[in-house]
Write a protein that binds this DNA or RNA. Structure first.
Lengths: 317, 317
DNA sequence: ACGAGAAGTGAGTAATTGCCCATGAGCGAG
DNA sequence: CTCGCTCATGGGCAATTACTCACTTCTCGT
């Protein structure tokens, strides 16, 4: 192969080896012969292709147990769309499985020929899902971020997912040039009156589908860890009965948005109407059980992508 | 898990096993334990998930499209060797990429310890490829030129590639001390009876591999530009149905060598047998589409090094 | 019921893959 | 120029996976 960009060359070779291994089904020995390298090097390239995420694997089959759980959840909580992936009891990851399934669902929407407005929230799970998206050309769609991308200290929020999405999907993107949280309800009004923000707010209201993470509360909550929320404020919220948050919007154990002043400072786009749009939550894991239960009970979300264990909890709750 | 469609059950299990294997990265032993089956059964389920296409693997890298295109061309036209390099849309060069890939392939042959006979055609693309060759010592091989190196006016043909090759590669070289085109079939016979030419003809018939450029026809054809062919003769050839040429041999749109008198005047070495040898064409670019299509259709060449755009054309043609 | 045939199972074994380690090439600092 | 560092390489070996075969179970038609 060409001798020029020596840096890329390794990844190119890795891609080639990975393709030959996973797609063409050759053995590493054959690959080594074809590429004129040793078997060990071929093995390294193949595993490099894996660790660099050049190779993406997805399962396209509704597994019966998961299907049943999904159907049960749909009936029980009146959800529009439920997807349950197998649990991996040995893994502590909060994204494995969900990310792939979420990416598949996002991809389904992006492949629609009719123009859609997709709204995207924030969070680690969503980030992992978006990272699984293949490059796509979707000029017909528009993608709007539901949350601001600026932290309390003015820096860009790492987990604002819309930028990762823009890398993979060629469509018009509308980020929110705002902090997640305004200092006061009045400041929020001022911020929201900016024309750029107005566009995002309008698009958010028109969204056909929204993909959101579901955040738990407590000292270890992602909101605190990422510095959006101080510990004492968090403690106050839990005392006030908050059970979880989506895009910053706090809700109680019945899934009713808190009426206190906190939610009046949240600068995020309001969640699209659950009557017209699908608001799909992506989350799994013990720590999110309470928040998820509240969210589905109260109809904060009407779609869910989760794993088997979480689904079981929600069915028995 | 309810038991209803017993037939599905196996596929469901296969899906679950496949998920645990490919997505969660567990070993088949672990899967067997988790699912309460034997390791062999787990292996069967995993391979079933693969063969039933439940698991979809995708490679996210520019090179993926190239490899797929290459495999497609190999199948479609029954080629022995296909290499597709990424297109560089910004470049008008007819050689960038091809030259490097061609050089790499030539190098692979030169590195073989067993003595080989390499045949080399002519053309700008091939020249660019040979210019990429590193200095090598290959006393075991012999390299023969497929075309004459003398123009109509008696001067040396600039694009006769074998001399450039001799500069880089230390091996025995056999140029063809002939014009490209004889004045008449009879003259060709006389020329070919020279003992030096006999050696080249014999070697050409023994060649293990031939690297050739593919020439398009028309007023701007390289054959005209380099003064091997007058415009009126070219016009006559296109009227007679010629679609392209390789080493001077004219062929029609189905890749069948023209039977007219022109080919009887071509003084080049006949192309090596496509049954025994690899005849690898190097070419890319809009202007060569027709000629390439004819050449692969008719089996004039059984190997191809080209770029993505050209590969796409050949796949859709 | 019964037998033929399809389908599945586990043991055993060959093939393939993953990983560790010693080696040597390449490179920048001194 | 040399030392020390990093990193790719290929050998060797253990772990993992794929395949074959003989045997059992199930199904279906008579």
């Amino acid at each position: 192969m060409a001798r020029r960009g020596e840096a890329n060359n390794r990844l190119d070779d890795a891609a080639r080896a990975g393709w030959l291994y996973y797609v063409a089904g050759r053995t590493q020995d054959e690959i080594a012969t074809v590429m004129g390298i040793s078997r060990q090097s071929a093995q390294r390239l193949v595993s490099l292709a894996m660790s660099e995420r050049l190779i993406k694997v997805r399962l396209d089959h509704p597994i019966a147990a998961c299907l049943e759980a999904a159907a049960g959840l749909r009936d029980r909580y009146g959800l529009k769309h439920v997807e349950v992936v197998p649990s991996d009891p040995g893994s502590t990851s909060t994204t494995v499985g969900i990310a792939e399934a979420g990416a598949a669902e996002i991809e389904r929407w992006l492949k629609l020929p009719e123009p859609q407005v997709l709204a995207i929230g924030t969070g680690r799970t969503l980030k992992a899902a978006v990272d699984q998206l293949p490059p796509m050309e979707c000029p017909q769609h528009r993608i709007v971020s539901l949350t601001g991308n600026i932290g309390l200290d003015g820096s860009a929020a790492y987990y604002n997912v819309i930028f990762s999405m823009a890398d993979a999907v060629k469509a018009r993107h509308f980020p929110m040039p705002l902090p997640v949280l305004a200092a006061s309800p009045e400041e929020r009004e001022v911020l929201h009156s900016q024309s750029l923000v107005q566009v995002a707010l309008k698009l958010g209201a028109e969204a056909n589908v929204a993909f959101v993470g579901v955040g738990e509360l407590g000292p270890d909550a992602p909101l605190c860890q990422d510095g959006f929320l101080a510990q004492d404020e968090m403690a106050g919220l839990t005392r006030a009965g908050a059970a979880g948050e989506i895009c910053g919007w706090m809700f109680d154990h019945d899934g009713v948005l808190l009426s206190g002043s906190f939610n009046e400072r949240v600068a995020s786009v309001p969640l699209p109407s659950r009557d017209k749009a699908s608001v799909i939550g992506l989350a799994k894991g013990r720590r999110k059980y309470e928040a998820l239960w509240a969210a589905v009970k109260g109809g904060i979300i009407n779609g869910l992508i989760t794993d088997e264990a979480t689904a079981r909890y929600l069915l028995n709750a």
